[in-house]
Design a protein around this nucleic acid. Structure first.
Lengths: 257, 257
DNA sequence: CGCCCGGCTTGACGTGTGTCAAGCCACAGG
DNA sequence: CCTGTGGCTTGACACACGTCAAGCCGGGCG
């Protein structure tokens, strides 16, 4: 089944979805990420069924929105390349970054409850995503117990991760928060078989600060301090984790326990 | 189920829920909470099927555990009466309160991902819960699209709520956090057709502080200040919201915007 | 009764991080 | 080329909240 008839894409969110010339041969079976993404728990035949409902559009440019807060909820999304920032705007107009999403990770699940997105998502760099229409996905997981179970797990994981994050924000110092974030990003790179020690941060210091509940200045100071301590190499957005154990120590209680 | 036990101030919670002789006939169909709990989206026949897998044990005493962190995950739970505190322990041994659960609310979903509970849950007072074995629940929701969908929504809601909470912790002052928590508890009372203005906090100041990322002392001071400002009436754990709009103002940006 | 103990309140003081302000650097556009 | 702009860094200072300490209150128990 050729896929480009499958998604008459024009109907949805304006420009973000158009034609996709180079993508015609991408599918879950040949995707490098299938082992850490939604297909994880499925057999070949099941993956095929999943693949059939997935829509792949041309890449998003930096700053493009995947979805916007309060928009009607239609799909969840899996990041295929690049990176995405999730954020929401409070009543009093402040932005709160709720997460960063890397390849193989799924976002948009917070919109299921109210059938409207509870947050916005936008590309931090040129990125491509798989769109998974939720109606069809719900039907499919009705038929594929493995898929249902895996999606339950995915959502559960997000809950657990958010609660970890709560811990971060309520109990930890600036040093600990930054260290933990870096370790988290590092681990996610490792999961994708990329270097866990050297990587580029796709987001700005401002976003990091916002996410961690700190100001830009504080984030900047922490980076500087870590570099001075020989734990990190920092060249603008290029990060080198020089002393992983040291960083882990910072992430925990550090100091003189 | 007469409601005046709820606020007999002298006797405290001891009386609020004692023997469970009356529990043998409790089921989702006659449960006052069915309209806000899991059965919400189901028709009579479906509720019956759900009801058949639910296990109801005798009430938990204050301090009893519903489940413990790292224990094998078997069930999710719905609170029927009383209240429950969710918390987890970090590597470095600190406790972090992750949530408070009132009647009609479902907890334990953070354990699905790893098949082990990511947190512990214990009763803040004498409480009763419905246990929902997750294997059977999974099968059932395979057959009942409404149930699957509702559970997706429930988990989504938890994700969205946690992200709201992230916002709280990273951006708000002590005043705002406490005000928001009180408003949340108030709203949840209203949902159960109880007084939104007068209620008893089942948790200690320490728990509140832990949950909100504040110290006991700060929480106490905020309560005092709110009382002095005429927004709140505070008599130990008995709370009266004297000026709901004022409290709402505190919860937002307050001050001279 | 008197004692202890845990939960709560209140005060005095210290500190981590926010705020404000200035300056640097890279890059884009005229 | 110069200039503007946005992201980042660094310093000086202020303040909200944590820390430490003392005291109150009510309940349980010998």
């Amino acid at each position: 089944m050729n896929r480009e008839v499958a998604h008459s894409p024009s109907v949805f969110h304006k420009t973000s979805m158009t034609r996709c010339s180079h993508d015609f041969h991408v599918n879950c079976n040949n995707c490098r990420l299938s082992s850490i993404c939604l297909p994880l728990a499925l057999d070949i035949n099941e993956i095929d069924q999943l693949d059939r409902i997935i829509q792949r559009s041309r890449p998003l440019q930096k700053g493009d929105h995947l979805y916007r807060q309060d928009e009607e909820f239609r799909s969840v999304y899996a990041v295929r390349s690049g990176s995405v920032k999730g954020y929401s705007i409070t009543d009093n107009g402040q932005e709160q970054v709720t997460g960063f999403y890397f390849p193989g990770e799924v976002l948009g699940m917070d919109g299921i409850a109210k059938n409207h997105h509870a947050s916005s998502a936008r590309a931090l760099e040129t990125s491509s995503v798989c769109e998974i229409p939720f109606d069809q996905f719900g039907e499919l997981s009705q038929r594929l117990p493995n898929l249902q179970r895996h999606f339950f797990q995915l959502m559960s994981q997000e809950i657990a991760a958010d609660q970890q994050m709560l811990m971060q924000l309520s109990k930890n110092t600036a040093d600990q928060r930054v260290a933990t974030l870096l370790l988290s990003i590092s681990a996610r790179h490792r999961r994708r078989k990329l270097s866990a020690a050297n990587f580029r941060l796709p987001m700005s210091r401002t976003d990091i600060g916002n996410y961690l509940g700190l100001t830009v200045e504080t984030v900047s100071r922490v980076f500087s301090r870590f570099q001075k301590l020989g734990v990190l190499g920092v060249d603008n957005k290029e990060i080198a984790i020089v002393d992983p154990e040291g960083l882990q120590t910072m992430a925990n209680g550090t100091d003189i326990n």
